[in-house]
Simulated scan of single mutants.
Amino acid sequence: MIVLFTDYGLTDSYVGQLHAVIARAAPGEAVIDLLHHVPNHDIRAGAYLLPAYAAEFPEETVFICVVDPGVGSSRAPVMLRAFGQWFVGPDNGLFQLLARRDVDHQAYIIDWRPERLSHSFHGRDLFAPVAAMLARGEFPQASDTGLLGSAGSEWPDELAQVLMVDHFGNAITGVRAQTVSPDARLTVNQTVLPRARTFSDVPIGEAFWYENANGLIEIAVNQGSAAEKLAIRAGDPVELS
């Protein structure tokens, strides 16, 4: 199984071109479009979202992960083995939280190169073929580094910030709910919110925070938009007390 996690969006041809490469290189392999709306160029947001979403997939799943504003630069292309899964993408901090949370992780710099390598589309020309090799049970030419580079090493274990706003207007943060008190109150944009178990536990139109289905703290409004009601945007800080 190959899973795609990018900031490419779905209005352009980028995702389709990834699928085309995988179809040629690993025909019949299941391909899942997990998320293509990581906030544009926001490596840190992707780094906190990826572990939460990857946990839903079985061991040996191969992830193509592209939030790569430095594509074509000196940043290394890497493969990370963590939690029994493979992650293929740039060594720019995107895999930092995964590696930190799995002390037995293993990192490899990808040495293999295709005949055609665009300076601006490593997702298609490098990461997709490498992911297809791994899905076929082959190991591409790579150097065992053991560890990732230092990008993102200063980021906290829990990021008290809105990572992204989904199409419902729910605001997803970088804090795992299990790390805070069940009675904690959340403050965002000078508004203090209580915790609720789920949407129907509060009146229609009321804002609250809850542990979402992936274990992250999320701000929501029952049958409404937290982003609109509370003027929330990606990057807004939150405080838990």
Rank of each mutant, 00 (worst) to 15 (best):
R81H: 15
V88K: 06
G28H: 06
R233T: 15
H19P: 00
Q161N: 12
P237C: 01
Q190H: 05
A184T: 08
A220G: 14
L186I: 02
P58S: 07
I110C: 11
D91T: 02
L159R: 07
E154G: 08
Y14W: 04
H41A: 14
Q178P: 00
A184G: 08
R233H: 14
G89L: 11
P69I: 11
R185H: 08
I2P: 08
L50I: 03
Q85E: 05
S150Y: 00
N92G: 13
L97Q: 15
A207K: 06
S73E: 08
F121Q: 14
G9I: 07
L4Y: 04
N189E: 08
A20S: 15
P114E: 12
F63A: 11
F208T: 12
N170V: 11
E211R: 06
F127N: 14
A231T: 12
T179V: 10
I232M: 06
G46T: 06
T6Y: 04
F63R: 05
F87K: 05
G235W: 01
S150H: 02
A26R: 06
P51I: 02
A226T: 03
A151W: 06
Y108P: 01
R197T: 15
D125F: 00
A234S: 15
I219V: 14
V188K: 00
T187Y: 00
A76Q: 12
G123A: 11
I110W: 02
T6D: 13
L34R: 04
A177F: 03
P90G: 13
V88D: 14
D7H: 03
H119P: 14
A142W: 00
V238E: 05
V15A: 13
A132C: 14
S74D: 15
A171H: 05
Y108S: 05
R136K: 14
E29V: 12
G235N: 04
F95R: 05
Q141H: 02
V15C: 05
N189V: 01
P27A: 07
L186Y: 00
A151D: 15
P114L: 05
S225C: 09
R44D: 14
G149F: 01
M1Y: 09
T6Q: 08
R75E: 14
P129E: 14
G9D: 15
A213K: 03
G224M: 09
F57Q: 13
L4N: 06
L193W: 01
D33I: 00
G46Y: 03
T179H: 10
H19K: 13
L4S: 09
V162A: 12
R136W: 05
I219A: 10
V21I: 01
A55I: 03
I32V: 15
A30N: 07
V103R: 02
A131H: 12
V162N: 07
D111N: 06
V221S: 09
A30V: 11
V221R: 00
R24H: 09
T187W: 00
R233N: 10
L216P: 04
D91M: 04
S74L: 11
A227E: 04
V202W: 04
A52I: 03
G137K: 09
D33Q: 03
G215F: 06
V3F: 01
L4M: 08
V38G: 05
G215A: 11
R101W: 01
D12C: 09
E228L: 13
G149R: 00
D102N: 09
L186M: 03
A26Q: 04
A26G: 13
T198K: 10
Y8S: 11
E115T: 03
Y53N: 01
D42E: 09
T198V: 15
A52R: 02
